[in-house]
Design a protein around this nucleic acid. Structure first.
Lengths: 180, 180
DNA sequence: GGTTGCATGTAAAACGTTACATGATTTT
DNA sequence: AAAATCATGTAACGTTTTACATGCAACC
């Protein structure tokens, strides 16, 4: 039974406690979003798929007149989750348009490169702010906190690199003007 | 004319010098691979697409009896490349299965978490080694060198975080044993 | 003569986002 | 009364990988 990593996002969260697809999505947006995004277009079909495979069980739990399906792990699902956790991680992918623009910046020059660096710095800075806001509203327990700290420190490092590199470019440009 | 970022990988490389699809792929594997991968399944169709759009021009340049198509930027293609370089980067995506496993590690415990951290550390360490090997065989010029340095420092930071965190987990476990 | 590298391409499958559609409930 | 939030889902589209298919040339 080969599952996609996104299926394990669902399995992992249902391992914390039973929840609806809507809840899975809102927790994804507060936790995995910065290193593993997932949309409704993936979550709802995947819930059905996992239920059909017997790894989770759905139960209609309407809140008033508002329909709602709460899913929970089956013993088979928990076993599958543990087996996945016990194997080495495989997927590691990065897509960073800013680095692409930096790589080709010879075609436009140092000013465009500085603008790209500044935009990338802002992106990382914004993520730091959002993650710190999450940390402030009640820090998560256990390993979730470790991952949150990673997110903050990782993005701070990135923002710092952009800042240092932009300054180095500016100093270089200033030196060239002085020497010329 | 909306192009995918992968199309700009091609445009950017043809901005350096004319080359074949095969060459584009081999340079991708030596440069953008760690932040923007591209396969033959994308490159060859995209070359045709860009040629049809008048942004690049292909010319049959066989080497002996071996067929070969070399492409170069048209003035319209260079204009398009510069316009893209002058706009702020948008795509920034990360997919890291290791962080996912770490997030859910409560279900298995500290040992599995340590193994995940160690696997992630190895991944980053290997990338550092490959990038350093590229640096040793003739460092690239201009902005390409900046991007290479980013790759090395970024992966070193990541490997370091994994190492520090794994040690912190071990110390914590040791303290608990002592207190218990 | 075999392996590696150069060279081009396609087809199917997997993966993922976006936009759309619908409707109830809670908060302002 | 309007806006935000809860809640579920689908369809179309775009992107990307993987596997397959082919063949020449250079080196060992």
């Amino acid at each position: 039974m080969e599952l996609s990593p996104t299926a394990y996002v669902i399995l992992g969260m249902l391992g914390w406690r039973p929840m609806s697809g809507y809840e899975v999505k809102s927790i994804v947006d507060k936790s995995t979003r910065f290193f593993w995004a997932a949309s409704y277009g993936q979550i709802y079909p995947e819930l059905r798929h996992l239920a059909a495979a017997g790894l989770i069980e759905g139960k209609a739990s309407p809140q008033g007149g508002r329909k709602r399906n709460v899913y929970r792990l089956t013993p088979a699902g928990r076993k599958q989750l543990r087996a996945w956790l016990d194997t080495d991680p495989e997927v590691y992918e990065l897509r960073d348009e800013a680095l692409l623009k930096l790589l080709f910046a010879d075609a436009t020059g140092a000013e465009a490169a500085a603008a790209t660096l500044e935009a990338k710095r802002r992106t990382h800075e914004q993520i730091v702010q959002r993650l710190k806001a999450i940390e402030a509203t009640g820090k998560p327990e256990g390993f979730a906190y470790l991952v949150l700290r990673y997110g903050i420190e990782f993005n701070q490092w990135n923002a710092g690199w952009c800042e240092r590199t932009r300054r180095a470019l500016e100093d270089e440009a200033a030196n060239q003007r002085r020497t010329a």
